[in-house]
Design a protein around this nucleic acid. Structure first.
Lengths: 242, 242
DNA sequence: TGTTGACTCTCTCGCTACGTAATACTTTAT
DNA sequence: ATAAAGTATTACGTAGCGAGAGAGTCAACA
């Protein structure tokens, strides 16, 4: 489907779709030779999700983090949409009541406290957003992902390669020659992200198994890799101390 | 009530109130010697209305035009709020249904057309806004025209003459002798239309520039006349207050 | 085959409704 | 009397597009 078809179908502007592409929120699966955007069915489903989040007042930035998170779960998200839409309807119901009361109040039929006049409003920070961020967009993971993305593709490739080598030796002992030399490379590589002390390196290793999102990500290269890396990183940190 | 009290009560930020003051949407009735804003009960009621309009997606500019329109009717507006809030709830209900369907669809339990997936969204132009503009913004102009017609040709001539004189001095300062005496005649003339308080007179002046139809009409007598008149009318209102 | 009209692209500029300091003064509480 | 909390003004920043320019593309029709 081309832009305008999508736009007409869902009721957003072409410009909006362009914008979502620009910021990397919804990048069409394909483009023609001449540069026309072609949206796939999956693109449409993602768009639907995006619009749900938008209706709930999420910022595009947050939405992006969420839907691209490796741990994002569509079903879970839909359940959450359902829940929060119901809450939103409750708020709306309150507002409707407030209007009704105000009409009567103005006619002099009833009394209203000042607070009652503003029931149902309250534009204070959207609580759903925080919750959802905790649920999917956890900062640790995102920052890590963002940084990786920022570092450019060549570092990404190095990381991938290293993951593969580590995976291939994950059955060996974490304090073996091979393991330690591979993990040393890992340590060096991470230096390009910030200044990791050996201790920070160790706790990062801890996170690899304690935080499921990391675990999941890492274990894609081989089951048990996260655990293996934690061990190896611990040993490495120990040896650096002396 | 001071800013923060209001802010906490209704759930908006202090900055927002400042902003509304800046753009002339909600100017506090009083200020202390030291410049603190003091909001009256009437200010609060207006704020409530403003928030209703905002909830319905009106721009601040439009809201300003509406609530300051000399023909604005609170009861009528409240009825309209009520109506459109109900419509909004219907839309929300549709969205909720869409989520529910999508959940089932994802589980493979039912089928969904592409259109069904986007039912309840549709961010296309807010119909309420147009309607409301017609109701108040337009009517303001229409009623004004009607009234002029009703008043007969001699008043029309007087108005025309006054427009010309004003146009001829529109390069002068709005608070000059000449400007003020001409605008005083204008004020007197308008008294035959209804009972204009100085404040209503001021907001009428605001409309001369904020509403293009007025502006166009007035500027036929000289470019910039509408703006000049607004200034002069503002000064006039200021001086009458004391 | 050429032409028209509807789409498309990228780029740039503009706008709204505030958020976020920074800095200085005022009021209230202890 | 001093700190803490609130307030004012000014200034700059941001999000999420809208609007328009200028140029290329595509399907249909003459």
């Amino acid at each position: 489907m081309k832009v305008k078809e999508v736009a007409d179908l869902v009721g957003v502007s072409v410009r909006t779709l362009h914008h979502y592409d620009e910021i990397g929120l919804l990048v069409p699966d394909e483009t023609t030779e001449s540069g026309y955007r072609l949206y796939s069915n999956e693109n449409l489903e993602l768009l639907q999700q995006i619009l749900f989040f938008k209706e709930l007042g999420f910022s595009l930035q947050t939405i992006k983090e969420i839907v691209h998170s490796p741990t994002f779960d569509r079903q879970e998200a839909l359940q959450m949409h359902h829940q929060t839409l119901l809450e939103k309807r409750n708020r709306l119901d309150k507002m409707i009541q407030t209007v009704e009361k105000t009409i009567q109040h103005d006619k002099g039929e009833i009394q209203m406290t000042t607070e009652e006049k503003f029931e149902g409003f309250d534009f204070r920070s959207n609580p759903y957003e925080r919750e959802a961020r905790e649920r999917w967009g956890d900062e640790a993971v995102n920052r890590s992902n963002e940084k990786v993305a920022q570092m450019g593709p060549k570092i990404q490739k190095e990381m991938n390669d290293l993951y593969f080598s580590l995976a291939s030796i994950r059955h060996m002992s974490p304090d073996s020659e091979e393991a330690q030399s591979a993990i040393a490379k890992w340590y060096d590589l991470l230096q390009s992200f910030g200044n990791y002390t050996p201790e920070a390196f160790r706790s990062l290793g801890e996170m690899y198994v304690s935080d499921k999102r990391f675990t999941k990500n890492i274990d894609r290269f081989g089951e048990g890799l996260a655990m293996f890396m934690r061990e190896a990183m611990g040993v490495y940190a120990d040896r650096q101390r002396k």
